[in-house]
Amino acid sequence: MSSSIEPYTHLTVLQFAAASGAALSFLAAFWLQFQISGRRRAALQNASVKSTVPISPNWAVGNGVFLTTLLLISRMVDAHRITLPLSDYFDAFLLLGLVLSLLWAYLRWTRHLWALATFLLPMIFALMVLGIVLGLSGVKHFGAHNPWVAAHIASVLLGTASFAAGCVGGITYLLADRRLKKRGQAGWDLFALPSLASIEKFTRHAIVLGFALLTLAAITGIFRAVRDPQLMGRHWYFSPKVLLTAVVWLVYGSLLNMRFVPILRGARCAWLSIIGFALLMTVFALML
């Protein structure tokens, strides 16, 4: 981080409240969706049970998106920027939430992938909570005025969004696989899930995109470390962050090659997409 940059303003109480409200809205949307499914099932057993919920999950998501957008605008004003605020992890994770909300909207209205939209909601919640925690625990300024840094951060951000989607795809795949393996026993029809082939395709697309962006992030990151030795020290390549990122890159690279490594198909691929994302989150934690 360059010393010429003004230290970034800390999270205000209002911003914290708005971010918490947004995160909770996404969680509420998830809960409401499950309530609807549960009630519909209960209504089939007992006619007196109402199969609707007072607030639509779509409204809850809309509320989350509205609060996040307001928050980003306020951060933009705070930072005296006219471009997207990408000053620190808090901003980055808010943007990540917003990007994933767009994906949610696409999946929500794509009939055969509808269930994936529901499972994306707790992921958005978790990422936003992580952003709030990072925002509260001391702000690390990105210095995104530098084009290399901006490119690095943007590719990290969008790559993370893709891998988050891939992780959601992996979780959904495992649930669908488990359900199909249960062979018609209890819990069979609570929630309609896409076909395994659809989920696998979605996960693969997310990983391909994420991998390309992660590669770009690695290149820009390496360039930055080489140009500015003070940033990470002379032996930057031995830093846990770089080594772990290399592991993440290899995990996702192997997933991309599942055609050539067929044993990675199916549930194994799903597990790897979850593990890869968990490792990526660890890289973020190391940067604290």
Partner: peptide, 8 residues
């Protein structure tokens, strides 16, 4: 129906 759960 079960086949549709696996294949597209």
């Amino acid at each position: 129906d079960l086949l549709r759960g696996v294949f597209d």
